[in-house]
């Protein structure tokens, strides 16, 4: 088995928040063209906080565990807090990832950030429209 710790295995075997949010407030997609991993994050925003976070991931065990952990960490955060979430935070919360898998944790946080940017752009567009 790949050198994954129990925490990573738990999030891989029982990923939290898998799925799609219909009529999401923001959607973010991030891919790694070299290995082909891809993550999509869906967010629902309420009072400037992440009310719901869901994801879909195409990738290895680490990619799935990272997505699951990002979704769990981000839920309830303010948008500003979530934008500050770093790959290192996620890997830390997972109690470590194999060295060559650290790039996977990049994708998770980035995909979430893309979803928040998407939400903010939509808000701006709405405000501009008024």
């Amino acid at each position: 088995m790949p050198a994954y710790n129990e925490k990573v295995m738990d999030h891989f075997m029982n990923p939290r928040n898998v799925g799609e949010i219909k009529n999401a407030d923001g959607v973010g997609e991030e891919g790694n063209p070299v290995c082909g991993d891809m993550m999509t994050f869906y967010i629902k925003v309420k009072d400037n906080k992440l009310d719901d976070v869901k994801f879909k991931t195409f990738g290895c065990g680490a990619a799935i565990a990272v997505s699951s952990m990002v979704s769990e960490m981000a839920k309830g955060m303010t948008l500003d807090e979530a934008m500050k979430l770093t790959p290192a935070d996620v890997a830390g919360k997972l109690e470590g990832l194999p060295k060559n898998k650290l790039h996977c944790s990049n994708l998770g946080a980035q995909a979430l950030h893309e979803a928040i940017k998407d939400y903010r752009n939509k808000q701006k567009a709405k405000a501009g429209g008024k």
Binding site: M1, P2, G36, F58, G59, C60, G61, A63, I64
Partner: peptide, 14 residues
């Protein structure tokens, strides 16, 4: 198609 080998390998191992 549409899924990744390591994840498959780990679930098969389980």
């Amino acid at each position: 198609e549409f899924i990744e080998g390591e994840a498959m390998l780990m679930l098969l191992n389980s």
